[in-house]
Design a protein around this nucleic acid. Sequence first.
DNA 1: TTGGAAAGTCAACATCGCTGACATAAAGTC
DNA 2: GACTTTATGTCAGCGATGTTGACTTTCCAA
Lengths: 166, 166
Amino acid sequence: MADSGTQGGETLLFLTDEQLRKGIEAMFFAYRGFTADPDRILEKYAYGRAHHRAIHFINRQPGLTVTTLLSVLGVTKQSLNRVLRTLIEDGLVESRVGRKDKRERHLFLTEKGEALERELSGAQRERMRAAYRAAGPQAVAGFRQVLEAMMDFEMRRHYQMMKDGT
Amino acid sequence: MADSGTQGGETLLFLTDEQLRKGIEAMFFAYRGFTADPDRILEKYAYGRAHHRAIHFINRQPGLTVTTLLSVLGVTKQSLNRVLRTLIEDGLVESRVGRKDKRERHLFLTEKGEALERELSGAQRERMRAAYRAAGPQAVAGFRQVLEAMMDFEMRRHYQMMKDGT
DNA sequence: TTGGAAAGTCAACATCGCTGACATAAAGTC
DNA sequence: GACTTTATGTCAGCGATGTTGACTTTCCAA
């Protein structure tokens, strides 16, 4: 079934159902590894993945507003707020009223927040680095191409934005 | 691109923190896309991702035991059991007592289960196919290489096993 | 025959999504 | 100035899915 699409006469063996299923499983297993190290660290502080994600993107784009973070993370404000409140209470995140628009809150990591960010991203980067090194630069380029093509439009927008600095 | 890395003391530009962070974000955003379509379908049936994963691997390896599925999914038996029970009650999964070892339960999809599996994997494969096609065969090879290198040992074992048929 | 593996179940709990409703402050508009 | 919209925060409740711990039944194997 669907064993080898052809396009312009050529065989596209990499598009078989079997190949696609392997890709699906690779995503599943790899994502587990991807989150495993931070998860272990977060346990120590009684935080979860949601905290990690918030910390990551605040570090990535210091001063971003709550609304922006909301749309990057793709969750509801109630869900984010629960996480953000504990991070602010614990002194990892600072929320500053906007100068131009005083309704906005701009989010920043405190030193303590940056320290945790470094610990988390350090672990995650180490695994990434090992994987990158094992696979080589060409594989890495392909890896990023496929992932990018897999994103929803909205997410790709955020990804592109982040790609070129702030 | 991919003109960056060299081995043996020279600079490995694809291993910079910036490159690694882009990879991390690509994983995050892409995984969201990866699960988006099945999630929408599952809503209709009041199932969740956990049900999807169980269905996927039972379909992948019909007759696998509960213990095997447990270790593939990497969750506790209590967690899996809750999911498995509803799938069996709803007539999507059949649990047969082992012939050799009667303690074991071998899991199979019913026709109804296979129908849902097809609906779910169809959607997921479509996205995968589009991404693969957009990126091309070489990128796909790299994609798989990096993902594989990112897995934990235990998960890679399962992945490899699945790779070569049952 | 006894120890341990496989499976199932009950209870309790935490994280983190969600919806709905509502409040406040500030900005923008007519 | 009155009205509307936007940004944020908060309360309450719910659902899916993960966890630990304790216990039972079944049954293979030494």
